[in-house]
């Protein structure tokens, strides 16, 4: 993946970025290139350093070592107001004493954009987030989702090179979050600005982004498209954090796969055969086990299967022909798990 892109198409380039807070090393050497126009996710658990990286790109923190480039220009030592980026804050950070319109116009007013153009651009930005008619309201009179849109409009109206989003959907409820995922994606395609967002929600990262960087303990574990990161996790951490890990290792790997090492198979790639003697195709692997747990989840059911060879695997099956009454009866049943060999991947420990 580490081909070097020509400078003009690189929106963000991080080199050897480090940040320590006293004895704690929050970011322990990050190298990353983000292309112009990309929708890029930094995914990781809390404390993995992803937010600190975002704050160093915005200019709120200065790195202990390494450099930050925006559009080929080194901005490592520049203040936030000297950088061509804008941030959508996790708490939105709307100015409570200003109307929606004044909030959105703030950046333009600071840059001495004329009154008529200012009004026009702010109105257009509010239209793009579907908030026309809210100009005169105060932030306190808006719902969480509406505040989120104002924060977006306030940042986008400045047409930054890169838009930084810190857990943009974290404070919204599930339904709204799913709506905003689609909307953010559409908005990004419309404005063509590079979006760089931080999230701890793997589903959010998988659904919205062009590429994902998975963070753990201040380092990037893997960078790739959602499909690459999900289908071919390169480390046990990525396998476990993005999706369900489902690892086969040690004796079980030898018995089932006939190979040494650690392998990952995603739960939806497994087929659950109720007959322990079900046939296994030439390009398939199979393992016999006992159903230990059945979790009915409406559209699908998760089965936890203890393998005879050791270890346990999670299986996800669509409830195409069965109902809850039937699947729950499978607890304790002897089954055979079958999967295509191309869905099993070796993992570097």
């Amino acid at each position: 993946m580490f081909f070097s892109m020509p400078d003009q198409s690189v929106a963000v380039r991080l080199r050897g970025l480090r940040k320590s807070f006293g004895p704690v090393e929050a970011v322990a050497g990050v190298d990353l290139e983000i292309a112009d126009g990309e929708f890029f996710a930094m995914l990781g658990p809390s404390g993995s350093g992803k937010t600190t990286v975002l704050r160093m790109i915005a200019g709120f923190e200065s790195p202990t070592a390494g450099s930050v480039e925006l559009g080929g220009r080194d901005v490592t030592r520049l203040a936030p107001f000297e950088r061509d980026v804008n941030t959508v804050f996790q708490d939105y950070a709307l100015f409570p004493h200003m109307s929606v319109l004044d909030n959105v116009e703030y950046g333009l007013r600071v840059k001495k954009v004329g009154r008529a153009e200012r009004r026009e651009r702010a109105t257009a930005a509010l239209r793009s987030v579907r908030l026309e008619g809210f100009e005169r309201r105060g932030p306190a009179q808006l719902s969480g989702g509406q505040r989120q849109r104002v924060a977006l409009a306030r940042a986008l109206v400045n047409r930054p090179r890169v838009l930084l989003l810190d857990e943009p959907l974290g404070a919204l409820d599930l339904k709204l979050r799913e709506e905003m995922q689609v909307e953010l994606k559409e908005l990004q395609r419309e404005v063509g600005i590079t979006f760089l967002f931080v999230t701890h929600d793997q589903e959010e990262a998988l659904t919205m982004s062009d590429r994902i960087a998975v963070f753990d303990r201040g380092r990037i574990e893997q960078v790739g498209t959602p499909a690459e990161v999900y289908e071919r996790p390169s480390t046990p951490f990525v396998a476990g954090f993005v999706g369900t890990s489902n690892l086969i290792s040690g004796e079980a790997a030898k018995a089932v796969l006939g190979r040494d090492g650690t392998f990952s198979v995603r739960p939806e790639k497994l087929r659950l055969a109720l007959d322990a003697d079900a046939p296994v195709g030439a390009d398939e692997h199979g393992a016999i086990g006992t159903v230990a747990e059945v979790v009915y989840a409406g559209a699908a059911t998760r089965f936890v299967v203890d393998l005879d060879a050791g270890g346990r695997l999670m299986v996800l099956q669509q409830n195409r022909d069965v109902s809850s009454m039937e699947v729950t009866e499978l607890r304790g049943a002897r089954v055979r798990l079958v999967w295509n060999r191309r869905h099993e991947f070796a993992i570097v420990p």
Partner: peptide, 27 residues
């Protein structure tokens, strides 16, 4: 006064004095 409001002012291009006058002082 949340720190993020000060950061937001800087992020939107306001230098110290302007951020003080338009955000910190009124609040």
């Amino acid at each position: 006064l949340p720190d993020s409001l000060l950061e937001a002012a800087g992020d939107l291009g306001a230098r110290g004095w302007r951020a003080f006058r338009t955000v910190v002082w009124p609040l």
